[in-house]
């Protein structure tokens, strides 16, 4: 992911706080938590507030890996993260709990904002914006997992891949799938076959929609069906492909 770069050079004073950076760094986590709670309360009541204490708590949690600071941030910002997820519209259809999304979003955020990358987030607003993106990503992954499940017949899902795999496995699997696609490509004779196979299996489209998208290439839906039947017949007789699918 790319990160927003600091828009101004680091100064003695915190970019967002009226408190000196040195002073913030010396505060105990307990004091910071107390100040954060008060500043946050001012925010909720529309009063002038200082986000510097919260930013420092994020720094303690993400750079110094302070568990107490992380615990406060998780507890304090969980309702906010849940509100972002709930208002997304996709929430109710995913069948997941709000808690699932909150935990996943924070986990993603924790992994992405390493001590080295923290400098790219000079304000509380930039940190929260990134947390918001992480919440969005976990919603998208969940929606994708669901559309995946709807797209595949049950028997292929059971012994097939789970949409939620580890990043390393995911990369390996992607390589394997790309090799598979390259092989399929060698079995196709022309542009019409490539369009039908790509749209049917990569994009998950039905013949009717494929024709609507490419009326220049096909005379009618019937021709899309003919092409699809020919390709599927050829692929189903292909021993090498059967071997690859059995893996």
């Amino acid at each position: 992911m790319q990160y927003i770069l600091p828009s101004q050079p680091a100064s003695r004073r915190s970019a967002i706080s009226t408190v000196e950076v040195g002073q913030l760094r010396q505060m105990s986590v307990a004091t910071l938590v107390e100040r954060c709670t008060t500043e946050s309360e001012r925010f909720y009541r529309g009063q002038p507030h200082d986000p510097g204490y919260s930013h420092e708590l994020f720094r303690r949690a993400l750079v110094e890996r302070d568990e107490q600071a992380w615990e406060y941030i998780f507890r304090h910002y969980s309702p906010l993260v849940e509100s972002w997820v709930r208002r997304s519209g996709a929430f109710s259809s995913t069948g997941e709990t709000g808690e699932f999304f909150v935990v996943s979003a924070f986990t993603r955020f924790w992994r992405a904002v390493t001590p080295e990358k923290f400098g790219s987030f000079p304000t509380l607003a930039s940190l929260l914006h990134y947390l918001q993106l992480c919440a969005g990503c976990v919603v998208i992954d969940s929606v994708r997992a669901q559309s995946w499940a709807e797209m595949l017949p049950e028997e292929t899902l059971q012994n097939g891949r789970s949409p939620l795999t580890l990043p390393d496995e995911e990369a390996m699997e992607r390589v394997h799938r790309e090799e598979f696609w390259n092989y399929i490509n060698t079995q196709l004779n022309d542009e019409a076959e490539r369009v039908v196979v790509y749209n049917s299996f990569v994009m998950g489209m039905k013949p009717g929609d494929i024709y609507t998208g490419r009326p220049d290439l096909f005379d009618g839906i019937g021709e899309v069906y003919n092409v699809k039947r020919n390709v599927l017949g050829r692929l189903s007789r292909n021993q090498e492909l059967r071997r690859m699918l059995a893996l």
Binding site: T156, F201, G204, L232
Partner: peptide
């Protein structure tokens, strides 16, 4: 079953990850 196996390998193969969309 054959179509399911093909989709399992190919469905959204070239779609960017959610991280890439966020980027």
């Amino acid at each position: 079953t054959l179509q399911g196996q093909l989709r399992q390998q190919l469905f959204r193969l070239f779609c960017p990850s959610s991280d890439e969309l966020a980027a």
